[in-house]
Simulated scan of single mutants.
Amino acid sequence: MSDQFVSVILDAVNKLNQSELPVWSKTDLFSTTYRGRQENVVKVVKSACQLAYHDDIHTVFELTFSKGCPGDVDADRYLNEEVKPLDLPDELKNFHVDCKYSFYAFGEADYMQDIVQIVDLAKNAGLNPQSMHYATSLSGSVNDLFQYFNDALSYAHDHIRHYVIEATISVNSPSLDE
C-alpha cells in the first residue's frame, strides 16, 4: 500500500521479465497469469513477490493456483518444461508473511480428507495453520510458504483431478501493530 504502487509493481515485473522464464505468461487489466510446470510456476510467482517486497511497504498479493479446468489450454507446451532455475538478481529476500488461503477440490465426493492432508502439510512446514471462516491462515517466511504451496500442489496433483487454491498474502501489515 503505497502511493508509488505502479513503480513497485512495474519494477518487480521488469526484473522478472529480464530472466528467461520457463513459463507462459499473460498480463491483462486484472492480473498476470503464469502457466507451466508446477515447480516453475511456483518459483516464478514467489520471485515476483520477493521482487516487489520493500521493508517499509505494506504489500498484498492475490494468488490462484489451479489444475483441471478443461477450458485452460493456452500454452500447454509449457506444462512439460523441465524444472529450471531462474536467472534473477541476488536481492531476493526471505521475509515474514501472513497468508489466508482456501483449497477447493472439485468433483470429489470425499474432499474433506484431502483438505485435512493439505492442512497437515502446512503444520509440518511450521506455518501454524489456524482455521477461519472459509479459509485457513498461515504465518511464516516467504520461502517456507512457497515451499508449502509447492508441496500442497504436488499432493493435490497426485490425488485430485480438479482443484483450486485461492491465497491472499500480506506483508508488513500495519494491522499487526494493533
Results as ranks from 00 to 15, higher is better:
residue 92 L to K: 05
residue 37 R to T: 09
residue 55 D to G: 09
residue 51 L to S: 02
residue 147 Q to N: 14
residue 46 K to S: 10
residue 35 R to A: 15
residue 12 A to V: 02
residue 22 P to F: 03
residue 177 D to Q: 13
residue 109 A to E: 10
residue 4 Q to D: 15
residue 120 D to H: 07
residue 141 S to W: 01
residue 178 E to T: 04
residue 174 P to R: 05
residue 9 I to G: 07
residue 42 V to D: 05
residue 7 S to L: 14
residue 138 L to E: 02
residue 85 P to E: 13
residue 44 V to F: 04
residue 86 L to S: 02
residue 102 S to L: 07
residue 69 C to R: 06
residue 152 A to C: 01
residue 49 C to T: 02
residue 80 N to F: 06
residue 27 T to P: 03
residue 78 Y to H: 11
residue 166 E to K: 12
residue 21 L to G: 03
residue 172 N to W: 00
residue 72 D to E: 11
residue 40 N to V: 08
residue 78 Y to R: 10
residue 18 Q to A: 10
residue 178 E to N: 12
residue 11 D to Y: 05
residue 112 M to R: 06
residue 137 S to N: 01
residue 64 T to H: 11
residue 8 V to W: 09
residue 20 E to C: 08
residue 119 V to A: 10
residue 144 D to S: 04
residue 10 L to S: 11
residue 58 H to T: 00
residue 30 F to L: 15
residue 31 S to P: 04
residue 116 V to E: 13
residue 86 L to C: 05
residue 59 T to E: 03
residue 161 R to A: 11
residue 6 V to P: 02
residue 3 D to M: 06
residue 23 V to E: 06
residue 131 S to A: 15
residue 91 E to Y: 04
residue 15 K to A: 06
residue 174 P to L: 14
residue 116 V to L: 09
residue 18 Q to S: 10
residue 70 P to D: 12
residue 65 F to I: 09
residue 120 D to E: 13
residue 135 A to H: 01
residue 74 D to L: 11
residue 62 E to C: 08
